[in-house]
């Protein structure tokens, strides 16, 4: 601590245990590009001006705590038990940990998922391709991570589905994930894929991540040991959000 005036200013905003005062900044080439011509919808929906560098202030290193408001019921993380009957499809369990890039688990953080049904159809008015809806499947789930940063879902394996990006375009099977983390800058929306999907080479969304190892970080692994006999196959997927970085706000100004 230095002189009293500085101490007073910091007393308000200087954290508190275990909260970083700045977060890692991935370089532009380490992130999924905003402009990726093979994905046609990106053409009119990416900024053309360069992004302006922003030193992280208190607003970026804090973030909302939505958990208790969004996860209301015990079955929020079981997508197979939200209706009177069971959905059609292959029942799976999906578990993993939410960690930062230092390997530190994020406890009590909200994980939101949404997905197509086993036939590859979303319960959404814009999804009109001729695959059946399942009256027993909505396709949305929510979970809060435990003390080890672990989340867990029971669902059915979604099917691949066609889309209009190019001739005979099909999306590999995937589950959408949304994470808030603890800080505004940790926000992540992504898609989790299943191992060995034969559609990978043809999908511009998957391949918008140019680095092969980075793409593999979006692919879950099959876990025989976690599979439940006579009940469900298991997949595991860990999610890494941005961790502590190197340049606190005042030094960056």
């Amino acid at each position: 601590m230095s002189e009293p005036s500085t101490e007073k200013a910091h007393a308000v905003y200087k954290p508190v245990t275990d909260t970083p005062d700045c977060y890692l900044r991935p370089g532009e080439d380490e992130q999924t590009p905003l402009d990726y011509p093979p994905y046609k919808s990106s053409r009119l929906r990416h900024p053309k001006q360069p992004l302006v560098f922003m030193p992280q202030t208190i607003t970026e290193i804090t973030g909302p705590q939505l958990g208790r408001e969004r996860v209301l019921g015990e079955l929020d993380n079981d997508l197979t038990r939200q209706h009177p009957g069971e959905p059609i499809g292959q029942r799976i369990t999906l578990t993993g940990r939410v960690l930062d890039t230092e390997g530190k688990p994020l406890r009590g953080t909200l994980v939101e998922i949404w997905q197509a049904n086993a036939a590859g159809r979303y319960r959404h008015r814009w999804d009109r391709w001729p695959a059946p809806l399942d009256p027993n499947f909505t396709g949305a789930g929510r979970a809060i991570t435990d003390d080890d940063g672990r989340y867990s879902f029971t669902t059915i394996k979604p099917g691949p589905y066609p889309w209009g990006n190019h001739y005979n375009a099909w999306r590999p099977a995937h589950i959408h994930f949304s994470l808030l983390g603890r800080a505004f800058v940790q926000r992540l929306v992504t898609q989790m894929y299943f191992p060995d999907d034969p559609l990978f080479p043809y999908d511009p969304v998957f391949n918008s991540v140019r680095d092969e190892r980075a793409r593999q970080r979006m692919v879950s692994r099959f876990a025989m040991s976690a599979s439940e006999p006579d009940w469900a196959l298991a997949f595991e997927w860990d999610i890494y959000l941005r961790g502590p970085g190197a340049t606190p706000f005042e030094e960056a100004l």
Binding site: L24, P26, E30, Q31, T32, Y39, S41, L99, T101, E102, G103, E112, I113, W114, A116, Y122, R123, H124, W126, D127, T138, G139, A140, G141, H174, H176, S178, L188, V189, T190, Q191, V205, F206, S208, V209, R213, A214, R215, R217, M218, I239, Y240, L241, R242, G243
Partner: peptide, 19 residues
């Protein structure tokens, strides 16, 4: 940094199911 971050993917057209 020990681990690399999980890459982002588009929210897509059907997020209203979940978010």
């Amino acid at each position: 940094m020990i681990y690399a971050t999980t890459p982002s993917q588009t929210v897509g057209p059907y997020f209203a199911i979940g978010l």
